[in-house]
């Protein structure tokens, strides 16, 4: 079994796993299970990155996405749990709209992408991308990404501050009068 064959086999395994878990993300009636399934989908995506030769990306995916963002989402699911929404089952009408939109998008997308010539993964598998990505991110030249990098850092800071500002519980009535004026 060559490396190519192994890679191909792994791809199909993870693709199948990813799609079935994704189905669970959008279809499972219990939201907590959907969140856990999302964790799985993101894990499979990490495997995809690895298969494509981006080891660094795979690591980031696990660390940040699975370990950070999804955990946040799980918290969110727990924080906003209501009896009425315990079972999230779409009505037939919504289901139909969703299916039409999703299938329509899928068909149009494939139709558009089908014209691209096929290609296969070449070059080394795993490793070697960390240095290149780091250079690209901090390169101020015409091929570099330092400006988007800084922009994203500002975005993250803004999101952080905004998140705190929005979620902070402001009870005006409970504040002392002097402070209420400033608040």
């Amino acid at each position: 079994m060559s490396a190519e064959t192994l890679r191909s086999a792994l791809f199909w395994v993870f693709a199948t796993l990813s799609l079935s878990l994704a189905w669970s993300v959008v279809g499972n009636r219990r939201l907590l299970r959907a969140a856990v399934a999302l964790m799985g989908v993101l894990g499979c995506s990490a495997a995809f990155y690895a298969l494509l030769g981006f080891g660094f990306l795979a690591g980031i995916q696990i660390l940040v996405y699975v370990g950070g963002i999804v955990v946040l989402l799980v918290f969110l699911v727990m924080l906003t749990r209501t009896q009425a929404l315990l079972e999230d089952e779409p009505t037939p009408w919504r289901h139909k709209v969703g299916v039409v939109a999703a299938v329509g998008f899928f068909v149009v997308n494939l139709w558009a992408l089908a014209s691209l010539p096929d290609a296969a993964v070449q070059g080394p598998v795993l490793g070697g991308d960390t240095r290149a990505i780091g250079r690209a991110l901090l390169d101020a030249g015409p091929q570099g990404y330092v400006l988007p990098f800084e922009a994203v850092s500002v975005l993250l800071l803004a999101a952080l501050v905004g998140g705190i500002a929005v979620a902070r519980k402001v009870d005006v009535a409970a504040l002392p009068p002097a402070e209420a004026n400033h608040g």
């Binding site: 959008v26 709209v97 969703g98 999703a102 997308n109 290609a119």
Partner: peptide, 24 residues
């Protein structure tokens, strides 16, 4: 197997499933 079309098939399917969830 792991040609471009296969990859695009998978990512498009993932995206479409996301749209389905988004709307339902």
């Amino acid at each position: 197997g792991s040609g471009l079309h296969a990859w695009l098939l998978v990512t498009s399917a993932l995206f479409s499933l996301g749209i389905y969830g988004l709307l339902t």
